[in-house]
Nucleic acid binder design. Structure first.
Length: 610
DNA sequence: CTAGGGTTAG
């Protein structure tokens, strides 16, 4: 029969996701007048949804005369697949109003998934409550979707209760539960449950490993990855590999990253889009922007994530003009930018003072692409204005933007006021910031320095008092450096290192040469009440200097020295490293919490503002 | 003909 012939054809299209073939079959169905016949319209919705053509799916859905449960379930799935789960939730009242239907278990499962996607545990709980009193209260598929929803919303305890109530657990329910434990940091629970799975597949491994990466348990993630390589034969899949590459990016271990990259090549996954994107990001984060560009230029297909990764990476390494020209190339390649791309672009502009270009991107994103700016976009624009000394405008933006500015936003503006010696705006901003009872120690340093510069000693002592009341403690600073396979961590003021004397001698020598060249220590970032020479001594032992000194002593001459620091680099160390790089004629790259600093020939890529 | 688990950029 003709009808079942088309049915099979459509199902085949869904499976292979061949949209052009699907459209052809749709046309034929219309030609034979079968578009309203039996299961064909529902199957069309399903096919279009699975092929990523949401608009087509909706058109069929809207034009249907008799929609049933299956029509609704199919269209919800289409919304979920398109990443528009909020729309899926929004149309549910119409199911009753238009067609007189109450959600069945298929629809509820899709809706719970929608809640998981948008992170709405409130609505998820409501659905759960309705589910337990519904006629299908024991349905295992709905239960699995609830386990996943609670897991994704960060409440693995609730997920476990539902999980326990599942009569016959299958791989899907196990995996959802394990993923929930892993991504909320309950590593032991995740691993323990994982070993109890009767028969694992790659998806179970993947859920565990990527969950561990997401919650920052990199060591456990790597260990499980090794276990998998031993245990599961030679099975590896791209999902797991991209997670592992992401883990290397997160902990900034270039050597490990390179090893994983070799593994990717050996296993033949170089050309996988997700993995290549992760590699670009990994190399950029691990301070090797050249390697990042190399991977990027060798990619055969690039999507918006690939372009955004290289644009953001290039911008963070201080190569703003190149980031902007990459954007032009991206548009020529026909790739549409998204909200992350614009974040990278405005960031790039702010680091070279391209004020009008930055504003242009901020406008273009709304006018040309219909993207509503987030708080991050405003913060980025604010940073651009502040850095470029448009302080009144920055203050105005802070007061009028549609989001509540946080401590970091006010601190950024204040820091700019200090940089541009604008005490007029600075005093106002400082007073406001002080009234917020800041939590970040560096905010107090900034406030104290601002008031001290303006000789407002009363305010200086208010800052000190507030600081002790709030019990603000500075996080200990540390820097790490990798040399070959070995990695060393130095803490600020560390005196127990076996090479302490050699490091000290080298730093003393460099200090003498720097002072000959005009170095004056900038002690403004030392918070303790100490004598001048004691303050200088504290700076002398900052962790980034120890790491760089160690690098100078142990690395292969002429190579780039790469250091990663957990806090922002201090102003004095920034000056010092500019001196050191020109004295020893070495390139030094420091990654701090906010960006990269490439020190070369006495200059830094950040242009002295960060 | 419809439902549930894993990947990349900030």
């Amino acid at each position: 029969m003709l009808c079942s012939h088309y049915l099979y054809q459509l199902i085949a299209c869904s499976k292979r996701q061949t949209q052009s073939q699907g459209k052809k079959i749709h046309a034929q169905i219309i030609r034979f007048g079968l578009e309203c016949y039996g299961p064909l319209p529902n199957t069309l919705i399903d096919m279009y949804g699975k092929c990523g053509l949401l608009d087509h799916a909706l058109q069929v859905f809207d034009e249907m005369l008799h929609r049933d449960y299956i029509s609704w379930a199919s269209v919800l799935t289409a919304y979920n697949r398109a990443g528009l789960s909020d729309k899926a939730i929004a149309i549910i009242p119409k199911m009753w109003l238009l067609d007189g239907l109450r959600p069945d278990h298929f629809v509820v499962a899709s809706l719970v998934k929608a809640c998981a996607n948008v992170g709405s545990v409130r609505l998820g709980k409501q659905l759960h409550a309705r589910f337990v009193v519904s006629p299908f209260f024991d349905d295992d598929v709905v239960k699995s979707s609830l386990v996943d929803m609670y897991s994704k919303c960060g409440v693995p305890g609730d997920a476990r209760l539902v999980f326990n109530s599942i009569g016959s657990k299958n791989l899907i329910s196990w995996t959802a539960m394990i993923s929930g434990y892993a991504r909320s940091g309950r590593t032991m629970d995740a691993i323990e449950l994982f070993w109890r799975i009767p028969e694992k597949n790659l998806l179970s491994w993947s859920a565990l490993i990527s969950g561990l990466v997401q919650s920052g348990q990199m060591n456990d993630a790597f260990n499980m990855f090794m276990d998998m390589r031993r245990d599961g034969g030679d099975q590896v899949d791209p999902f797991i590999l991209s997670s592992i590459v992401g883990a290397c990016a997160n902990i900034t271990t270039l050597e490990l990253g390179k090893q994983v990259h070799s593994l990717v090549i050996v296993l033949g996954f170089e050309d996988n889009l997700f993995i290549a994107n992760a590699l670009v990001d990994m190399y950029a984060k691990c301070c090797d922007i050249l390697a990042a560009k190399d991977v990027f230029s060798n990619m055969s297909h690039r999507d918006v994530v690939s372009w955004t990764s290289i644009i953001v990476g290039t911008a963070q390494h201080g190569q703003a003009e190149e980031a902007l020209s990459l954007y032009e190339e991206m548009k020529l390649a026909g790739i549409k930018p998204n909200e992350v791309t614009f974040l990278g672009l405005i960031y790039a502009c702010s680091h070279v003072g391209l004020v009008s270009e930055g504003r242009h991107f901020f406008d273009s994103m709304q006018e040309d692409y219909g993207i509503r700016p987030s708080l991050q976009h405003y913060t980025c624009l604010l940073d651009l204005l502040s850095r470029s000394a448009h302080l009144d405008e920055a203050e105005n933006l802070l007061n009028t933007m549609p989001y509540e500015p946080d401590e970091a936003a006010w601190a950024a503006l204040l820091s700019a006021c200090k940089q541009h010696k604008c005490t007029r705006v600075g005093k106002r901003v400082a007073d406001h910031l002080l009234s917020l009872s800041p939590k970040d120690p560096s905010t107090y340093i900034l406030l104290s320095n601002t008031y001290a510069t303006a000789a407002m000693w009363g305010s200086v002592s208010r800052v000190r008092k507030l600081m002790s009341v709030m019990e603000v403690k500075k996080e200990p600073g540390y820097s790490s450096i990798e040399l070959g396979k070995e990695s060393q961590v130095f803490y600020s003021g560390e005196v127990s290192h076996p090479m302490k004397d050699q490091l000290c001698n080298l730093l003393e020598e460099l200090d003498k040469e720097m002072r000959r060249r005009g170095y004056v220590p900038d002690i403004s970032s030392v918070l303790h009440e100490l004598e001048q020479h004691e303050k200088e001594r504290l700076l002398f032992w900052h962790s980034e200097r120890l790491a760089v000194a160690y690098g100078l002593l142990k690395s292969v001459p002429g190579t780039v020295i790469r250091v990663v620091k957990n806090l922002r680099i201090c102003r004095d160390c920034h000056v010092v490293l500019k001196f050191i790089c020109s004295i020893v004629r070495r390139e030094i790259v420091v990654r701090d919490v906010s960006r990269f600093h490439h020190f070369k020939d006495g200059k830094c890529s950040c242009g002295d503002f960060w």
